[in-house]
């Protein structure tokens, strides 16, 4: 493998509470190549915050500490907020869960995409317009010129998510972090959005971090999977080998999901072991 796109050593994120500091990500290591990496875990496992930390977007009063965080060989762990602007959105992008809350409701979606163009690429209005239509077409929107003039409330969930992805594509990032990008979508729409992400990874050589709670989806979509529990990676494996994981938490998580054709009289529930969190 060539030089990793992203390398993280000993990432820790803590929030101050009345009872002292609460560590929600506790020593996470991650090496990412040109691949689709899935991060799976339940709510509170720290998976979303990990994604945000890479973007330099951990909300205050959260504190991030990391031994090493390098992106394309460049150390970004000590980057000042002003310098992060150079990376964020341009070379590392993020797609969030719900387009309803992430798009500006009173601005045409085409103008919102153009805004991204002006910010990261510069250029004139005509170029911005042309490029906007181009990225809308790239996410398989049939009539980009019509969609350009729509407001977010006029879009369906799947279309909204595609607009979000189109917006991320403008600066052609090398790394895309997708935080539950399809969990608000129907299964058939979900498939379409995933196919677009897959094409982007394949055709543009982009790396993808796919954060999700859906084990089955991650297993079938990603190349590699990290399973997080209580702020730590408890298991890391190839997606194709997910059903052979060893860690009791990972096993418990897998077996607690009903599958099509399930005839177990009762679903096994997770007996959480305090030791896992150590």
């Amino acid at each position: 493998m060539s030089e990793p796109v992203l390398e993280i050593r000993n990432l820790r994120i803590a929030f101050p509470t009345l009872r002292g500091s609460l560590e929600v990500v506790r020593g996470l290591d991650l090496t990412l190549g040109r691949e689709r990496l899935g991060i799976v875990g339940e709510s509170g496992s720290g998976k979303s915050l990990t994604g945000r930390a890479i973007m330099g977007l951990v909300p205050p009063p959260g504190r991030v500490s990391v031994d090493r965080m390098s992106f394309m060989g460049e150390d970004i762990s000590r980057l000042a907020p002003a310098d992060f602007v150079r990376l964020r959105g341009r070379r590392i992008s993020m797609v969030l869960q719900d387009p309803k809350f992430s798009l500006n409701p009173v601005m045409k979606v085409g103008r919102q995409i153009e805004e991204t163009y002006h910010l990261h690429v510069g250029g004139g209005r005509r170029q911005a317009y042309a490029r906007t239509l181009e990225v809308l077409a790239a996410v398989k929107i049939r009539d980009p010129e019509a969609v350009y003039h729509l407001y977010p409330h006029q879009l369906s969930g799947g279309m909204g998510q595609r607009v979000m992805i189109a917006m991320m594509l403008i600066p052609e990032p090398q790394l895309l972090i997708a935080d539950e990008p399809t969990s608000a979508l129907d299964v058939t729409i979900q498939l379409q959005v995933l196919a677009i992400l897959e094409d982007l990874v394949r055709e543009r050589g982009m790396s993808l971090i796919f954060i999700s709670h859906d084990l089955g989806l991650v297993a079938s979509f990603c190349d590699r999977v990290l399973i997080m529990y209580a702020g730590k990676v408890v298991e890391s494996c190839l997606a194709s080998e997910l059903d052979r994981v060893q860690h009791p938490y990972a096993r418990g998580l897998l077996s607690s999901v009903p599958r099509l054709g399930d005839d177990r009289p009762e679903l096994p529930t997770l007996e959480r072991d305090a030791e896992w969190a150590q």
Binding site: L253, P258, P268
Partner: peptide, 13 residues
């Protein structure tokens, strides 16, 4: 979450 889902589904059954 899926582990909690399993508990609630078992309960309903």
């Amino acid at each position: 979450d899926v582990s909690v889902q399993a508990e609630v589904l078992n309960l309903l059954r």
